[in-house]
Design a protein around this nucleic acid. Structure first.
Lengths: 207, 207
DNA sequence: ACACTTCTTGACAAGCCAGTACAGAACTGC
DNA sequence: GCAGTTCTGTACTGGCTTGTCAAGAAGTGT
């Protein structure tokens, strides 16, 4: 029995995320968010709780989206696990797509992990941002570890290797490609990094 | 024939770097720099050129320091090259020390690559910062690649492996440990990541 | 059709920030 | 000791930023 919101919450959060991504947290003003989303100041403070609230909700939305990606690409039967890991790695080094778009190769910096970027900028003084970023990393790491275990069950990865160690290493490579890839290196180089990492995975010793 | 400066330039730049590291570029005001360095506004604008000038000079100083690290640890005869690479990797994942201090394990986030952090925050709109960061990456990558080549000459790494590919991969892991290590993971985990990466390096096939 | 609730818009005030200007201090060289 | 030059500290200004407030618009349910 009241006036409904005239904007799509997710759409607004996407626009805000894009703005935070390009200008950083401290680099974007409320007016910037207002311009990017089309919302007035009052609406922003009513629906969210100002700049910081927008960030937190945008990061939560990002987390929900991010969590789905690896699971959809990595979960599955043991048989194709290694191939799924391969495909995921190749895609992950090129960044996380903002929405359903394809990751644009021309703007690798803009496709860097949103959580990582925010955590690096303000995580030291913002425990909530820090926690959200940790969760983002954990969900990827867990999915990768599970896929490694599946590949081990299928005899494609050395069963003596610690799947958690490998998952940490792969996560580190993926995050590293955000910063290495963003500045000065071509998409081809990123692909080559992913291929090198994949080729180095410990294969089972031949009987 | 004039009054000399009463402060040590490098000392000031170190303090400014520390401030930029903890608060980010947009998160630190000129007054913050003033408080951190002890210099007044006038001196800051006279010696450097305001906030941006301080950042650029701090990054240049960082670059000079950074460039020395890998060279001192990695350059040398072919014989110990693999061991030197091992030692460097183990140290690099724990961050870059600010000065001659030991890298404090309790503040891995603060020991992240200064250039990478600044580039991620403002590199998209600041070509000079972007360029300085790229140079930082290049100097590390070149030193690592040279060490890989030395290890190959000594028969410790598969001669068929592309040393540049490996160097890119190792650089990516080192940069990734900045963000992965900073949030939620213990120093032991970082060591384990470095050991895993080292163990996966392609060894020469036995004759 | 009406009353009620919520949303939206624009404006406002208090505070912060970067950069400048000016006055005084300190040091050098003669 | 003095003139000249540079450094140092502080006050000031114009602009930007954040968060709030009040007035009007837009639906909802009866």
């Amino acid at each position: 029995m009241a006036r409904p919101r005239s904007f799509d919450r997710d759409h607004v959060l996407h626009a805000a995320e894009r703005q935070f991504r390009t200008s950083g947290y401290n680099g974007t003003s409320v007016d910037d968010i207002s311009a990017a989303t089309g919302l007035g100041r009052g609406s922003l403070y009513g629906a969210f709780d100002g700049k910081h609230g927008v960030l937190l909700e945008a990061m939560s939305g990002y987390f929900a989206r991010l969590a789905q990606g690896p699971r959809k690409m990595l979960d599955g039967p043991d048989e194709g696990a290694l191939e799924r890991l391969h495909a995921y790695l190749l895609r992950a080094v090129h960044g996380v797509p903002l929405a359903a778009d394809v990751p644009p190769a021309s703007d690798r910096a803009g496709a860097a992990c949103f959580a990582a970027k925010m955590a690096l900028e303000i995580g030291a003084s913002d425990p909530e941002v820090k926690r959200l970023a940790s969760e983002c990393f954990s969900v990827v790491r867990a999915a990768v570890a599970e896929c490694v275990r599946a590949a081990q069950r299928n005899g494609d990865i050395d069963p003596d290797a610690d799947p958690d160690d490998l998952a940490y290493l792969l996560l580190t490579i993926i995050r590293g490609s955000d910063v290495v890839g963003a500045y000065g290196h071509s998409p081809d180089r990123l692909t080559s990094i992913a291929e090198s990492a994949f080729a180095l995975l410990p294969r089972p010793r031949h009987h």
